[in-house]
Structure formats: C-alpha cells, structure tokens
Design a protein around this nucleic acid. Structure first.
Lengths: 183, 183
DNA sequence: TTGTTTACTTACTAGTAAGTAAGTATATTT
DNA sequence: AAATATACTTACTTACTAGTAAGTAAACAA
C-alpha cells in the first residue's frame, strides 16, 4: 500500500516542523501509525532517505501552490504565501526552512543540497512575484526585488519561530507589516 | 576551579548555536575539554541545568552590551547589535533565539520561560532604541516601534539561519536593507 | 594534623537511537 | 497451481544517550 508510505512521510514532515529532524525518532512515527520501526526502514532504509522524501513532498507542495496562483495578481499570490505560513503558525509549526536550517550542520549532504535548492526556489518565486508586481504598479518598494524577497522569506521563516516563543501575535504583527511596506 | 565550569558553559553555548540543544551530547563537551562526562554532571546535574546556565550567560552578554552602548546615538547602538550578529554569521553560528526556538516544544519548561524572557528583553531593547532614535530624528519609519523592533529581531534571527543554507551574502543583504529602511 | 570540602575519575546503569536479518502473510504474475 | 514480489513483523544488534554511585587526590579549615 502506498498509504502507509505516504502516512510515514506526512508524519515525518509534521515531526520535523514541530520537534526538528534530530529530535524525532522512528518511535514517534511507528507508534501513532501502529506499525513497527522496521516497517519504516522497509520504505526508507535510513533517516536521510526519509528526510529526502519529506523535502521532495515539500517541493511538490510549493510547486503546486506556485502553479495554482500563477494567474492571480501578484499581491494575491503573496497573500496566499503568507496565508500558508499563517496556517503553519496556528498549528504551532515552523516551515521546513526554519525547522531544518538550525540543524543544517548535522544534516546529511544530500539533505543539505535539497534544502538549499528548496530555499532558492522559494526566494526565486518571491523575487519574480515582487518584480512583476512592481512593474504592474501593485507593489512599491526601493531596492532590488531579490533583496526584498530575501527579507520577506527571512521574516516569514523567523516569525513562525518567534511566535512559538512569544505567542501568535508576533506572526500577525510581522506579516501585516511586510505587506504594508510594499503595498 | 571556576575555569572548567566556565569552559563547559562556553562550549555548550557554541554547540547549541551550531548543532542545536537536542543534537549535542555530553561527549561533545567532555572530549575537547579532556574531562569525563561525570565532571559535567558534577557542575550541572542535568542537561536542563546546563541549558539554563547557557541562557544566563547569554543574558549577561546582552546586558553588558546594552550597558556599554547606552550612551551612544541610537543608530550606533543598532549597528553594534547588527555587528554582533555579523560576528555570529562569520563563525557560522545562529543566535540563541534562532537555535533554541525550533526545539522550543522539546525544551524543559524553565528553559522555555527563560528563552521567552530573553527574547522579550531583546525586543524591548530594540523597541526603546527605535523609539528614542525616531524622536531624535535619527530614524524614520512608519508604525509602532515595537512592531518594527519585532521585524528587525526576526530578520536578524532568520538571516543567520538562511546564511547557513544560502551563504553569508544573505545576511549582508538583509542587514543592509534593515538599516536602509529606517535611516 | 586531622577533617572536610572541592573537583573531579572510574565504572557503571537503564533507556533509547537507528538499523538489520530472517521469517510470514497476502497479493500478483506466470 | 507454482513462483515471485510486496509489505510488512519478530527479534535482534550496536552504538550512544543522560545520568549515577562510589572512590580519590588535592586544597583548605579547624
């Protein structure tokens, strides 16, 4: 069944975002799914394989989002992105970048590379969005779109982490300001 | 000797910032210091005690910084803060907030509380700095100083994490923009 | 000089981590 | 109907984790 495999990846994704890659164990997955840890190893020989599967899934979700919002005005696209972060915030999760980057030095090199590619893809998309939006007169900001994109992504990433410590209002205040600054 | 105790805290601080709280072990400390793991337990009965000692040290460093820069113009104060983050960046470290917040859910409650207090202290200080700086005409920005402070802290925190993945230029671009936006 | 405190080491425990080898039931193919 | 592949379980190993109990050498105090 593909079902179990998908459930393992889904749970691993959640666990990475709530506890971090090094802080979750196979037991955290096998217990709720009522399977044995060897079943996880059957689908994913080692933890790095599981981590890679999670990153692939995140990449798919990102690409689906981008494709779905492509035709929308740029401010709507950005609001969708912020909305997806808001959902993570309310379920007390970080994003995959915010969850894996603190552990970056301890990650296997294939996960490091894939995380770098993922981050680059997010930044590239926001850059394009800001660039097009400014040309259409939807956005107004000074400086290069890429620099501004870097700042927006970094802010969204960190606001989820800060919200955990300081409460959800931190996310709301930061995300509101991000939009106010360019609209 | 206070020496060994201080060295343990110093190394633990570094390890938290490079690997994360749950990803470093007593061996990572005992080996380089050429002591036994029981020596660490002698000074810090459990890992939470060690974590608390690291947070206390971070608090002291913060308070020393604040006290030293108090008399300076507000833009200089902010530059000092950014400078201290730049140092962390070049030694491939995150700040204590960026390092501990992803593990927040797994931390003992006294560490959670202390981290919350630490974050609040940083934000409070930046808020005060922005407030005073704007009144003196050094800074210019719209919105509440507290919201802007939240954004600056969140950006600094995240830029260290992003720099790990994307390279140090991420930090430089973000920190430059932070200042440009309010000067 | 004796007793006590400090700062450890030695030697260990119990628990948990990822990972593996071999067996099994079910479904699919030939 | 037999052979094979799939998706596991059972049972285990090795390595490492935080943590502890008991012992020791040196410094200090009475």
């Amino acid at each position: 069944m593909q079902d179990t495999k998908d459930k393992i990846v889904g749970l691993a994704d959640q666990l990475i975002k709530t506890k971090g890659f090094n802080s979750f164990s196979y037991k955290d997955i096998s217990d709720p799914l009522a399977i044995k840890n060897a079943a996880i190893h059957y689908h994913f020989p080692n933890k790095a394989d599981l981590g890679m599967a999670v990153l692939e899934q995140e990449f798919n979700i990102l690409n689906t989002g981008i494709a779905n919002w492509e035709a929308l005005p740029e401010d709507h696209q950005l609001r969708h992105l912020i909305g997806s972060f808001a959902n993570k915030c309310s379920s007390h999760m970080a994003c995959i970048m915010g969850s894996l980057s603190p552990d970056y030095n301890t990650l296997p090199s294939n996960m490091q590379e894939r995380l770098r590619e993922f981050s680059a893809a997010v930044i590239k998309w926001v850059t394009q969005c800001l660039h097009n939006g400014r040309e259409k007169g939807i956005f107004s900001f000074k400086g290069a779109p890429e620099d501004r994109a870097l700042m927006i992504v970094s802010n969204l990433l960190a606001s989820l982490l800060l919200s955990r410590v300081m409460g959800e209002s931190a996310f709301e205040k930061i995300s509101k300001q991000l939009l106010d600054d360019i609209l």
